Amino acid sequence: LAALHAEGPLAGLPVTRSDARVLIFNEWEERKKSEPWLRLDMSDKAIFRRYPHLR
């Protein structure tokens, strides 16, 4: 499970980098069924690119 911001401008976004990794992994797991070539990237760089508020 990932903790998400409940309200405000960040509502629905992950609270920590660990939470972001959970979301990225879950999405990758779903997408790899139809796109088996996808690589999993959970590096800090990938997290910041996707969720800049975690910098």
Rank of each mutant, 00 (worst) to 15 (best):
L1G: 13
L1V: 15
L1D: 11
L1M: 13
A2L: 13
A2S: 07
A2T: 07
A2K: 04
A2Q: 08
A3S: 13
A3R: 15
L4H: 05
L4S: 06
L4M: 09
L4Q: 06
L4W: 02
H5P: 04
A6D: 10
A6I: 12
A6N: 12
E7V: 11
E7D: 14
E7H: 11
E7S: 13
E7R: 08
G8M: 04
G8R: 04
P9W: 07
P9M: 08
P9I: 09
P9Y: 08
L10M: 08
L10Y: 13
L10T: 05
L10K: 05
A11F: 12
A11S: 10
A11H: 08
A11D: 06
A11V: 11
G12A: 04
G12W: 04
G12P: 03
G12T: 04
L13I: 03
L13A: 03
L13E: 05
L13S: 03
L13C: 09
P14G: 01
P14K: 01
P14Y: 00
P14W: 00
V15F: 06
V15G: 03
V15K: 12
T16D: 06
T16Q: 07
T16C: 10
T16A: 08
R17L: 15
R17P: 11
R17H: 09
R17K: 15
S18V: 10
S18Q: 15
S18H: 15
S18I: 12
S18K: 15
S18F: 13
D19N: 03
D19T: 03
D19K: 02
D19A: 09
D19Y: 03
A20V: 01
A20K: 00
A20Y: 00
A20P: 00
R21Q: 10
R21G: 04
R21L: 10
R21T: 04
V22R: 13
V22S: 08
V22C: 13
V22F: 10
L23M: 09
L23Q: 06
L23C: 07
L23F: 05
I24N: 00
I24V: 07
I24C: 06
I24M: 13
N26Y: 12
N26P: 01
N26R: 14
N26V: 11
E27N: 05
E27M: 07
W28G: 01
W28Y: 11
W28K: 00
W28C: 03
W28F: 09
E29T: 15
E29G: 07
E29W: 15
E29Q: 15
E30I: 12
E30Y: 10
E30M: 11
E30L: 11
R31N: 07
R31I: 05
R31C: 06
R31A: 09
K32D: 03
K32V: 15
K32C: 11
K32E: 03
K32I: 13
K32F: 09
K32H: 13
K33N: 10
K33Q: 12
K33R: 10
S34D: 14
S34N: 14
S34M: 12
S34Q: 12
S34G: 11
S34V: 13
S34P: 02
E35Q: 08
E35D: 11
E35Y: 09
E35H: 09
E35C: 11
P36D: 06
W37H: 14
W37G: 14
W37P: 04
W37A: 09
L38M: 07
L38E: 07
L38A: 12
L38Q: 07
R39V: 15
R39Q: 15
R39C: 15
R39K: 15
L40S: 01
L40R: 01
L40P: 06
L40E: 02
L40W: 02
D41E: 06
D41W: 03
D41K: 03
D41F: 05
D41Y: 05
M42C: 13
M42L: 15
M42V: 13
M42R: 04
S43F: 02
S43M: 02
S43A: 03
S43V: 02
S43Y: 02
S43D: 05
D44I: 11
D44K: 07
D44P: 08
D44M: 10
K45I: 09
K45N: 13
K45T: 12
K45L: 12
K45Y: 12
K45G: 11
A46Q: 08
I47G: 00
I47A: 01
F48S: 11
F48E: 13
F48W: 08
F48P: 01
R49I: 15
R49P: 02
R49L: 15
R49E: 15
R50N: 08
R50V: 09
R50P: 01
R50I: 09
R50E: 08
Y51S: 00
Y51H: 07
Y51G: 00
Y51K: 00
P52G: 03
P52Q: 02
P52K: 03
P52T: 02
H53V: 01
H53K: 00
L54V: 01
L54M: 04
L54T: 01
L54I: 03
L54D: 00
L54G: 00
L54S: 00
L54C: 02
L54P: 00
L54Q: 00
L54A: 00
R55P: 05
R55T: 10
R55A: 13
R55F: 12
R55Y: 12
R55H: 08
R55M: 12
R55K: 13
